[in-house]
Computed example of a mutant assay.
Amino acid sequence: MNTRWKPNVTVAAIIAQDGKFLLVEEHTPEGLKLNNPAGHLDPGESLADGCAREALEETTHTFRPTALVGVYLSRVQRPSRDNTRAEDITYLRFAFCGELGEVQVGRQLDRGIVRTLWLTPDEIRASASRHRSPLLVRSVEDYLTGQRYPLALMHTDLSVLL
C-alpha cells in the first residue's frame, strides 16, 4: 500500500518589541532548544488562529497576527536511539508577526516550555547552536528586512471551521 507523504503544518509567531524578539526555551529530543513560539496547526482552525493559540499556550500572552512574514519548508532527520525509531519529518511553517497582548493571569506555559526570553537579533544569531530549527533565525531576518504579506493572502474555507 502506498502512503501519501504529507508535511507537518506549523505556525510561528515572530514577536518583536523594543529591538528584541520573544522566544521560548523548550525541551526537545536534542535537549533544551530555543524557538519562536510555534506549534502544529490544529483541526478546525485557520492559520492565523492557530498562531494566536500557539503563542498564548507557549508564552501566556495573547497575540494577534497582523501579517504573514513568510512560508518556510524544512526537514528534520533524527536517527534512531534509546528505543525510538528514526524520524524523517518535513515541516511547512507559516510565520506571522503581530501585536503582543497582555499576559493571561493564572495561565501556565505549555508542557515542554521551560521559559520565555527576549533576545536581540545579534543574540539570536550568536545562539544558532541552540536553535530548534534554522527557521528561527531565517524568519527573524525576514522580519527585520520588512518582509510582510497581508493576511488576506490566505483564505480558510468555511468547511475547515465546521
Rank of each mutant, 00 (worst) to 15 (best):
E58M: 13
P7K: 02
P79Q: 04
D18A: 15
T28R: 07
E141G: 00
S129Q: 11
I14S: 06
N83T: 02
C97N: 13
Q17S: 14
P29T: 07
N35L: 05
T3D: 08
G44Q: 06
G112C: 08
N2I: 14
E99D: 14
T120W: 09
V103M: 08
T90I: 09
N8K: 09
T156E: 08
A13L: 06
S46M: 03
L92R: 12
G146Y: 07
P7G: 08
S129H: 08
T145H: 12
T116N: 15
S74Q: 09
G39W: 00
E102D: 15
E123W: 06
R111Y: 15
L56Y: 02
L162A: 12
E26A: 11
R125T: 14
N2E: 12
Q108R: 15
Q147C: 11
V140K: 10
V105D: 14
H61R: 10
H40P: 03
I14Y: 02
S139E: 14
L92A: 13
P134W: 11
P121E: 08
E123D: 13
T10S: 13
T145K: 15
R130E: 08
N8W: 06
L22S: 01
R130P: 00
E57H: 11
Y149A: 15
E58C: 03
W5T: 09
G50V: 00
V105N: 06
S127K: 05
G98Y: 03
G106H: 06
Q17W: 05
E25V: 03
P43C: 01
G19M: 10
N8C: 09
G112T: 07
Q108Y: 04
L92C: 12
A13N: 04
R148M: 06
Y72N: 04
Q17T: 01
L135A: 03
G50Q: 02
T62A: 12
R75N: 14
E141K: 04
E57N: 11
H155R: 14
R4N: 09
S129Y: 00
K20N: 06
V24A: 06
P37W: 01
F94V: 01
L136K: 01
L151C: 06
G50L: 00
A48C: 08
A16F: 01
V137F: 08
N36M: 14
V9Y: 09
R64W: 00
V105E: 15
G70S: 04
R64S: 12
E99T: 15
